[in-house]
Design a protein around this nucleic acid. Sequence first.
DNA 1: ACCTGAACACCGTTCAAGT
DNA 2: ACCTGAACACCGTTCAAGT
Lengths: 200, 200
Amino acid sequence: MQEKSPRPYHHGDLKRVVIETAQAMLQEEKGWQFTLREVARRAGVSHAAPYKHFPDKSALLAELATLGFDQLHREVDGTSGRHARASRTEFVAAAKAYIQFGTANPSLYRLMFSADVDKKAFRTLDEAAAGAFAVLTGILERGQDSGALKKQPVRAQAAATWALLHGFTLLAIDGQLLPDKVGAKPIDAVLTSLLEGLAS
Amino acid sequence: MQEKSPRPYHHGDLKRVVIETAQAMLQEEKGWQFTLREVARRAGVSHAAPYKHFPDKSALLAELATLGFDQLHREVDGTSGRHARASRTEFVAAAKAYIQFGTANPSLYRLMFSADVDKKAFRTLDEAAAGAFAVLTGILERGQDSGALKKQPVRAQAAATWALLHGFTLLAIDGQLLPDKVGAKPIDAVLTSLLEGLAS
DNA sequence: ACCTGAACACCGTTCAAGT
DNA sequence: ACCTGAACACCGTTCAAGT
């Protein structure tokens, strides 16, 4: 019995395989050491093959970052109920989901905000980031409607919230929020402080 | 008249020159593309020479990051008066100095929190980061003493403040807080929001 | 003690040539 | 249309050899 075309000359689906291999590598320890040649190696293909699907490394990184923002979008969005009015609990759940995503996928999260991704070519990346940002804005709007949050310019509130979540996530990834430095349960303390700034 | 020993075989002060050259490169556009060989080239020395002063690239990066934290420490500290009690104004000035440092030295700021620096060998880096962190803690303590800030566990307040400043700084560096996305004067809006969370 | 030059094992990227 | 293999210009790092 012959194996199903073990290594056909034309891979057929290489673009997807490259992306999936790269994503798997990002999940690993030291996933931030990202090598195009290693991706090709694992995909069982020559190191020049990916260039038929991505103009350069930056473009692949941009694609991975875009997919990361999409996933972040979905995970934060998934915590929020579909009510027209949002509670503080809902707000906190969304915030925790954001931080959870980042700390669970440190290399990917870093990549999403890395200087190495191709910023010019991929408007898609900006759109994906804006999409994730819009989720925050939406929750804040609905929180204001319910009276749980202070009525303030929503975009400024969203920027402050995003900055706090982003900073907290990165500091956590860097191991710079350890209890001995910052007290126990930093996440709860920080979210409390944030809420007190926004709550009515 | 003879030039003063134009290129002596023994440089004599190479370690400092390497650091200063590296710092100058970090100030440039694309300063984050950091190459040990390019540093050596600019210092007019062979590419192997730096290895007599730094075990590897990580070690140099760690040294640069440490110096960065020292500078950040000084600049934030410089804004705070020497009174035992701190006002909100003082707190805001410190926060703005933090953000100003980061946005004025984007590559250095990124490096200070980069995954590439040698975390194990250099306890100095941790100490420098802790020093900068301590400034925030000090201002918050003195702000609580003056009654300008709510009495809360200081380390948690400091963590929230740090996270917000860190996130804001990085988003600003990434160009992700542009007015069209986030409204005008994001910095003031964010600091206001932060203050409302901490103020009494 | 400090520096050089050649060498090694890696990259990202390109391009003629193969299927 | 898609992939390979060799090639080029770069890295970081090591090490015998020079001063």
